[in-house]
Amino acid sequence: MSDVNNEALEQAPIKLVMNQLPAIDVPFESPLHHVELAKIAEHGESQGGVVFRELSLGLLTLRCTPNAEQATSIEAILGVALPSKPLTSVSSASGELTVMWISPDEWLLQVPQDKAFELETRFFAEVGGHYSLVNVSGGNTVFELSGEDVVKVLKKSTPIDFHDSEFPVGKVVSSVFAKSGATICRTAEQSYQLVVRRSFADYLWLWLQDASKEYGLTVTC
């Protein structure tokens, strides 16, 4: 007979959350590690019209249709309410956390990489009811594109309208991007964040190099 106490398990369901960063001394490997962005940043062009930076962020996908109770506890954890208006994003006062609207029952939470596990743990401890929260940091990476010619490069890659009247700061869209897909968020006047699939990171890096060739591409770290 098993000595696992099933009754106790049923009474207090344990939600297993694994820290995707096993230890501080285990380095996180970027999907673009082979590109050696740090070397390009040091020796490459410095006056380009497009500035590329890869961000290492913790990404969590939240799926739920929050009831009043869940909405309250989620807001208590995040410090901001989930944006219910389509295609919008909100950031916490410290700027540490960004919540992006993905679909009517889905949000993407962005936090510093080492905070993802803490946030996930808090969610399962404090939010009850039916919902799903998954750490998707390992499957995605974030590119930050900025510079005065950034919109020209984006226009080559996706059919989205980037005119100021259509795409204000804070707007977030998911769309096709080159032959892949991306979630694009405008973070500042001339700065956009692209959340892309890890497996497409290399392809998109090659695409962005080609698309920004005529404006000059600066890599920063």
């Binding site: 389509p86 295609l87 679909s103 009517p104 059919p159 989205i160 869209v173 769309s175 096709v176």
Partner: peptide, 11 residues
Amino acid sequence: PHCGEYREEEE
């Protein structure tokens, strides 16, 4: 009707 805006057929 969910995003509330027009998009290209490609999507």
